[in-house]
Write a protein that binds this DNA or RNA. Sequence first.
RNA 1: GCCGGGGUGGCGAAAUUGGCAGACGCGAUGGACUCAAAAUCCAUUGGACCUUGGUCCGUGCGGGUUCAAGUCCCGCCCCCGGCACCA
Length: 917
Amino acid sequence: MAAYDHEAIERHWQERWEADGLYRSTVDWEKPKHYALTMLPYPSGDLHMGHWYAMTPSDARARVMRMKGYNVLFPMGFDAFGLPAENAAVQRNVHPAKWTYENIDRMRHQLRSMGAMFDWEREAVSCEPSYYRWTEWFFKRMFERGIAYRGEAMVNWSPTLQTVLANEQVIDGRDERNGQPVVQKLMEQWFFAITKYADELLSYEGIDWPDAIKAMQNNWIGRSEGAEVTFRTEAGDEIVVFTTRPDTLWGATFMVLAPEHPLVDSITSSDRREVVDAYRVAAAARSELERMEDTKEKSGVFTGGYAVNPVNRERVPVWIADYVLLSYGTGAIMAVPAHDQRDFEFARQFELPIIPVIRPQGAAPPAEPEMEVAYVGPGEMVNSGPIDGIETTNAKGRANPSIAATIDWLEKAGAGREAINYRLRDWLISRQRYWGSPIPMLHRDDGNVEPVADEDLPVVLPEDVEFEGRSPLVTNEQFLAAVDSEGMPARRETDTMDTFMCSSWYWFRYLSPAFEQAPFDPDEAAYWLPVDVYTGGAEHAVMHLLYARFFVKAMRDMGVFEDTERVMREHGRDPSGLFDEPFVVLRNQGQILGEERAGDRLVVDGHRADELVVASSIRVDPAAGPEAGLVVGELIRRTENALQVQTEGGLVAVRVTEGATIDIPAIDGTNDVTQLKHHLDIERMSKSKGNTVNPDELVALYGADTVRTHLMFAFEWQKGGPWDSRGIVGSSRFIEDVWKLATSGYQPGTVSEEASSTLRRRVHQAIVKVDADMMDFKWNTAVAALMTLRNEMQDALRAANISPHVWVEARETLLKLLAPIAPHITEELWHATGYATSIHLEPWPEADANIAREDTVTMVVQVNGKVRDRIEVDAGISPKDAEATALASEKIAAWTEGNTVRKVIARPPKLVNIVVG
RNA sequence: GCCGGGGUGGCGAAAUUGGCAGACGCGAUGGACUCAAAAUCCAUUGGACCUUGGUCCGUGCGGGUUCAAGUCCCGCCCCCGGCACCA
């Protein structure tokens, strides 16, 4: 018997499958189709454990479906535009395209080593002009339908670099590269009107998605019913507020505007100007997340201005506070401190009046100044003029009598109207960057914008560019210069698109990546669409998955699927409802998290340049005191050559120049900046966090089959967890054992009928369990069931008392059930047994329920809920017999003696509980 | 802060959804084989107590419902993911 040589076997079969085109998927209307899709990776450089964890179970699932008789499409590609490529360009002087394509080459190679059944003929790469031509085309269609429009949004603005920074480039309100402050600034940009689809996105009809994902999307969309009410400043300007509780308008005692609200300037009185301006500057330095984070301590300032409450002509002071966000609602709120906890706390802190307008059922109205919390329950309206005495409930919107009455009153009085507000904001797709799909728009001399003509698509990114921080598109005259539809000079749009745009339609491009007449070939689409199973990380629960749903709905409404529908009808397939949602079944895996690690303690010398320290030398010294150098502390984060060091005085940004000396005593030879270890929390693996685990070494050591098996065995797939490489030997032993079992050349001794039928029963039980678990994405218990079968077969092999045909059935079933998880070794052993065709073309094993059934069961007998005996009983035992059997037990008698049996609960055949007392 | 998920042996985890807590593995301990080591095989392995057999305790913490709670309810603590320019 030859030893198991994983390296030779895996190489051989990967080459053979490729040569045979085993995984090529072609349209075949005679067979049922299955489109399996797993989220495409960003080409960050190396494939890490997280990719394997996400992809190999998806591959295994696709393989099971194939063995079940489906024609399976399982493609792969790269989401290739994005920020890391530009970081590399800015700081290492590598062109983003070069960096990206080199990474893709490496990752393609690594992906092949997984032994997955990807159909590489269908690969799509989003940064190729043949791909982004259609991303641009979709933008144009969106523009034509009024979905793409220009509007204003806040950006992280670096005044020193005169550029926009991504959220992850801002640490502690400062640019991570140069330590300079970052401010929030309004800028004109492109949006998609996803809010037009808000209501449709709240419905999940016809799709099987996890409840948690649906809940998160619902919360993200955040539909709320209420009213828009118009207040007027004393100067006569309108302030529109949205409120879900218009019925409490009579209790509104002040207003709060977002600090960026356009009316702040005009409403602020001269004596308050200085305070207000200072507050606005401070607010601009904080991100929305930071503003929402610390809500215990309210901050805000009075503008000195007043507005008039339209329901009672009361004069109310107007404040600004950063807990009111310009991007939510109208950026202004009316404050009813008596019945809203946040307003209540604000009022208490700044000593503003509180007027209760709801009397709780059968109680006196809350009295001032004794109130301790806002009253948010039901009751009856008081102090509220025309709606006095009307009941108020916990219902939302018009379903609440008091709200319905108020809306009617407001509409009649012309002071407001019923309104629905969404937390969901329109999708900001502009990025002030180079490495993204260009937005195919022209700015005409007359100030209008117009789209680039279809025949001029794609607008191609210029290759000859320099990177300093700002997008090179802004200064590239050759790129900028264009001619509009009337032959007049025009300038190109320099914003590029959010990469979520590229990943919102990629599974259509997989259908026909070389197709030139449209984004996808209708002949392919008619057969394969929609995606049957989509798998990917739960971190995409809201944004990517919501954008993808929006995109398909918009495509449907733009008529993009008309040809596809025609082809479907020609083949007798009914297209209705097939283009409302992109993914029929969605399952999320958890994440493989990186292990925790402390960062190196650095001693940095050099010189200060503004907020930044430019390093001339860096030494790693775990014992260094705080005075050992210019900057001393733990390395928290590193992006290329920009370091964040945690010193006693706070975070310090350090830039490592080319000539700087790096000294890491633990690593011999010349050290460089990439060898510095930065702090790692237990958190998701990603290249930018530097906590990835590379599977290549493990593949070299144990083989891809073992790595695949281990990833599926060691975690609950939907949950994930921190990576720990120790347990892999268990999976390795399992794979080795399968090799030994299948190559043992079983020779029976004295055959036992009982032992034979027991093994046969175990084999069929394994089929039931493995099949159910795999269909349900429970990979760890599927592998455990296969290991149990392995144990049974080892015992049988040793006893040599199994009839030969039972042994053969056991061996072949084990190989087939394992084939989706460990495709190479099972293929090798299948052929070694004498079969000439691939195991991956074999039909999936089917269990015989009669063979799988157990005749006897261990029945547990409890006394007062505690297990006191176990009795072997017939599996079909009646409740009466079960009870009698339990009461007849001697062990039970010892516990019931001297006590009255009050009750017997029989749940045959598993359990009987006797209650005594 | 808001939304979602989670917390079970020394470790990764199971538990047919209210019915034997710890399947399947890792690690550890003892033994076999070996000159020896590795590999392999056998046994034990949640904790405490006593006599072999058993008793009591045990699923983040505190309460509750139930014949029966890891599972359901109420209140708390901690960890992870997302929060709109990382993808």
